[in-house]
Structures are given as structure tokens and as C-alpha cells.
Design a protein around this nucleic acid. Structure first.
Lengths: 209, 209
DNA sequence: TAGATTGTTAATCGATTAACAATC
DNA sequence: TAGATTGTTAATCGATTAACAATC
């Protein structure tokens, strides 16, 4: 009954780290890796890693370890990276442009297929070989280009409006960089990436030194 | 014995959200807010909020709620935002430039006081009114300008080297955007902001729809 | 075979939720 | 006073760690 087991959010957030480390190991020409070595490279206990992986299947060989290529492919499939999702960035300011240029997304198999802005001075320009479209045409273009994920990088005041449009246009998920709590239907997946959280928690810790 | 109580990471990560929401409430002219209303705005249960806040002191009034100004000031102090930490960005590529321009850091009380890069074509230019310095002078400038936090936005291959220099120069904390696990001394605080984690976990969820 | 390492179950630890007394 | 809402304790839930049998 694997299908009924609920995987913890913590486990899911570690999978991309495993994927990343397996890719690096692959680049180094390593064929087989143990949970011990993976753990050493990531600062995660080997027990934790084995537990995480075991919740999706048996990927290792007892007494041997994990085959790097095979495990990387499996973790990639678990994360759905083999779907090569089409993504769009909305709001081509400093952050939006940086995201549009972020090379790691390509490495992970995402396809950047559209950029949107409302500023006539930005519309029509090209960022990372993709033309910036008028946000007025969002619905049409999302459907035409079969965009699965919308990345919101507009100012907080406009974020909810953009989210509503993305939902209406039929994206499957939203990655939100605006520091607000969005209201979206229950079926919509949304990941919030509020950059001030990380910096503030760092401030908390160094304050207590 | 409050000082001995260990506050959970989850609680600390929620504090910036409380701060943000309290600031918005303040802007709206709201004087008093209940844990219920705060919870509604954040999608967090009121019990959770009361528990989080109570681990730092008694900030509310029974039967009344929390005074917005007072609670915002208290949460800000808990996070150490009143220290007005001096920050520097290392690596002025697309992401580094976006971070240098990120206005929310100002809102939180951080001071951007230095930018560094190794590219002669970038050194000497100005981003958000701050001049980009040669990374060769990092140690000297970190000390001169009393920089508390270093933000690493260089390619993964250079990140460890930059971290080592920041530690040697005496920063108190590192905010790392490079997708690698850094080796830093135990006393150093480091927060990793790997952007591929968020997008990958979104991929995971929409794959299972 | 002996040594190594996984996968899994049990034990522990930590965080969230529920309940309610205190009190404004 | 009655109603509202906090702060705190107890109960539940979930995640990590420890231990070890299975097996390559």
C-alpha cells in the first residue's frame, strides 16, 4: 500500500539535495555510493537518507550501496523532473530577470518558455533568449505554450492578481517570491519563497551569539 | 529559566512571517490584533501563534489580543532586526544584482554596505548606489565597514573559497545561494537558500496530481 | 566466509493541536 | 458581569534516531 503512505515535507525537501549530490558524484565518475558517503557530503545522517529513499522503493543493494546513475534517475523520476515542465516567469524586474537566467533550472530539466511584464519599456525585450510578453496576453500564452508552472516575481501588491490569472489559465503550480500569503484554490500547489525569512532567521541566530 | 529553552527552527522561521503581517496591519492602521486574526491572515493556527510568541514572553493581553505596534517591535527585537546588520553581497551576477536591489531588506532594517566581484568588467560599477569592489580586497573591506553578514551569490565552484574568506574576515553569518554544502567552523551561522529545492518540491507535488 | 551496507522495525525525540484556567 | 482571548499544560501526532536482521 505504498500509495497511501504520506511522505513528509522534510523528506521531499531533501530529495533535491540528494539529486544534486548524485549529479556531482556522477560528474566525478563515481559508480556506487553508500548512504554513509552521501550523508557525509550533505551533512545528513545515513539512517535518514536510507529512510527517505526506502519510502519510495528499494534502490540500493545490501552490502554494496547505491548505483549512482540508477539512483539519480530514480530520484529525478520521484521529483517528476523527467516531465520537463514548462515554466514562465511573471514580473521581469531584477529578481524575475535573475530567475529567467538561472542556469540550474535547465540542469533540473525545466524549460523556460515565457516571460511576462506589464511595463511597455520591458515588453518586447529579450531575457535569456526568451521574449518578454505583455501580461495582458497571459491567459492566451499560458494555454498556447502549455505552461505548467508560473513563477511570480512581481511586487507584493500585484501578486494576488497574477496568481488569480495563473489559476484561471490552468497552470498546475505556482512558485511565489512575493512576501504575501496567497489565496488560491485547494487543488492548486503553491510554494512560497520568501527571501526575508532566510535572512531574518540568520539575524536571529547571530543576535544570540 | 527561559534562556535554556530551545526554540524550534519551525518557530524561528515563522517569526519573520509574523513580523511581515504585523507591519501590514500597522500600515492598515490596526491597533490590536488577535491570534485568530493573525492566523487567518497567515494560514497558521492561532494556537500555534500563541505558542510561538509565548516562548519568548507574554506579549498579549488576555481577553483583548496583541497591540500591533508593541508586538511588531518585540518580534523585531527577537529576530535581532534592531541591530541593523551590515550586509555585503559577493558575486554580482544576475542573482547577486537582484539581491543588491531587493527592497525588502531595507524594510527589515538591513544595511547594504558592500558588493564584491572578481570580474574587472563589473568591478567599479554601481548597483543600488553601492560600488562593486574587487574581491581581492574582501578581507580589508569587511573589517573596515564592519560587515556582519555575507551573502554568497557566486557560482558553486567558487562558493567554498568565498565562505572561507568571509569566515577569516570575521563575519558573523553567511547566507548562501550556491547549491553546495559548505564547510564552515561550528561557530559560524549559515543559512542555505537553494532555489532548486523549492521548484523541485513543486514538481514533486504537481507530478502526483 | 567475513565484512559491509541496506531496509525496516522499535524507541526516542520534538512539534503541533486540543483543552482550559486565568484574566482583561 | 458576560464575552473574549491569552498563556500554559496535557494529549496527540509526526519525524528522527537507534538497532539489527537480511543479504550482497
Amino acid at each position: 500500500m505504498k500509495g497511501q503512505i504520506v511522505i513528509s515535507k522534510a523528506t521531499i525537501d531533501r530529495l533535491p539535495l540528494y539529486f544534486r549530490t548524485l549529479r556531482l558524484a556522477q560528474d566525478e565518475g563515481i559508480d556506487i555510493i553508500s548512504s554513509d558517503e552521501l550523508g557525509r557530503r550533505l551533512g545528513i545522517t545515513p539512517e535518514q537518507i536510507r529512510k527517505d529513499l526506502a519510502s519510495f522503493g528499494q534502490f540500493g543493494k545490501k552490502g554494496v550501496g547505491y548505483y549512482v546513475n540508477e539512483l539519480k534517475r530514480n530520484v529525478g523520476e520521484i521529483l517528476g523532473l523527467d516531465n520537463h515542465w514548462n515554466i514562465a516567469v511573471i514580473g521581469i524586474g531584477h529578481l524575475g530577470a535573475a530567475l529567467a537566467n538561472y542556469q540550474n533550472f535547465v540542469t533540473l530539466g525545466f524549460n523556460l518558455v515565457a516571460l511576462f511584464d506589464q511595463d511597455p519599456g520591458v515588453i518586447g525585450s529579450t531575457v535569456n533568449h526568451v521574449k518578454v510578453e505583455d501580461i495582458m496576453n497571459l491567459d492566451e500564452i499560458i494555454k498556447e505554450r502549455n505552461i505548467h508552472i508560473g513563477i511570480i516575481a512581481v511586487p507584493a501588491a500585484f501578486a494576488q492578481g497574477v496568481a488569480d490569472k495563473l489559476v484561471a489559465a490552468g497552470v498546475r503550480g505556482i512558485w511565489n517570491f512575493a512576501p504575501i500569503k496567497m489565496k488560491v484554490p485547494d487543488f492548486m500547489h503553491i510554494v512560497n519563497e520568501d527571501l526575508s525569512v532566510g535572512l531574518s532567521s540568520l539575524s536571529y541566530h547571530i543576535t544570540r551569539k
